[in-house]
């Protein structure tokens, strides 16, 4: 039970955050408020995973039939919906590019997505940065020169954020683009990594991501060539383990690729079965 006294109002919301975070795990876990043990002596993380284990990843293509392409991803408890329109007529004259398609990304976070409810303005700097990161990633992967003077819209909606929202968004965007039939050089597969006590961790959840004990690395690769298209790291901890973290995260990307590709094939088979009635 969490206790609140009337005198210290500010503590209330912090503890409410805790209450909400508790409810994200199966089985209540109690921990001291000052320090969370990210990796226990048996090698288990706060959610019971091993250091190099990816969270359960499930995908669904075309959840929204009205869009050109769409995909829904659940990576652990992080849930993202991606919707793609295009290529289509460019809406703003200023954005028309004579030799290629213009990629437009909007990154939205539902007010109820985090442990603590928070409504973010559309001009929130962090959201605009994330949208830009996604746009730049796909600018180099989508074969935009095939569709000059048109526009491709990628709308990302984070419905629940339990860590790794950016990577889940990139994975969802990839699937939605594939679903829309937009030509791409390869899948873009993203994953996060961290490091605790010299041990690299794969696919950070929210508690790990917000902890000061580990850096937070997001990387996205093109599986066929292994090329890195996105790399972001924030760190409050001095770490010599960068290469180890990066390699583990890249390995995670390949695991993600296997799941994404498999769900695309399943979806294609289903669609083909439905369409060939004759």
């Amino acid at each position: 039970m969490t206790t609140v006294t009337t005198a210290v109002g500010g503590v209330a919301s912090f503890l409410l955050f805790f209450r909400a975070v508790c409810s994200l795990f199966i089985g209540a876990t109690s921990f001291a408020m000052s320090r969370v043990e990210l990796l226990n002596p048996e090698g288990l993380r706060v959610d019971g995973r091993r250091a190099n284990e990816l969270r359960k990843l499930s995908c669904k293509l075309s959840p929204l039939q009205h869009a050109d392409g769409s995909a829904y991803i659940e990576q652990g408890n992080t849930k993202v919906l991606a919707v793609v329109y295009g290529p289509r007529e460019t809406r703003h004259r200023a954005q028309v590019m004579h030799d290629r398609a213009y990629i437009n990304v909007e990154y939205l976070v539902a007010p109820f997505s985090a442990g603590e409810r928070k409504k973010r303005s559309k001009n929130d700097k962090r959201l605009l940065e994330l949208a830009l990161a996604v746009k730049q990633t796909f600018d180099s992967v989508v074969m935009t020169t095939l569709h000059p003077r048109s526009q491709i819209d990628i709308y990302l909606q984070v419905l629940q954020d339990d860590g790794g929202a950016l990577q889940a968004s990139i994975n969802a965007a990839t699937l939605a683009l594939v679903d829309a039939g937009v030509p791409m050089v390869d899948y873009v597969c993203a994953c996060t990594g961290g490091c605790v006590d010299s041990q690299a961790l794969l696919d950070l959840n929210h508690i790990e991501e917000s902890s000061a004990e580990t850096p937070d690395l997001t990387v996205a690769i093109l599986p066929r060539s292994g090329k890195v298209t996105l790399l972001q790291m924030t760190s409050r901890v001095h770490s010599d383990q960068f290469e180890q973290m990066l390699n583990l995260a890249m390995e995670g990307c390949r695991q993600v690729h296997a799941v994404l590709d498999s769900s695309v094939r399943d979806s294609m088979q289903q669609l083909a079965d439905q369409m060939t009635h004759r």
């Binding site: 594939v178 899948y187 093109l222 590709d261 695309v264 060939t276």
Partner: peptide, 11 residues
């Protein structure tokens, strides 16, 4: 009906 071959990006 002939067999359809499915491919995915980068295949």
């Amino acid at each position: 009906m002939s067999e359809q071959t499915f491919v995915t990006p980068a295949e």
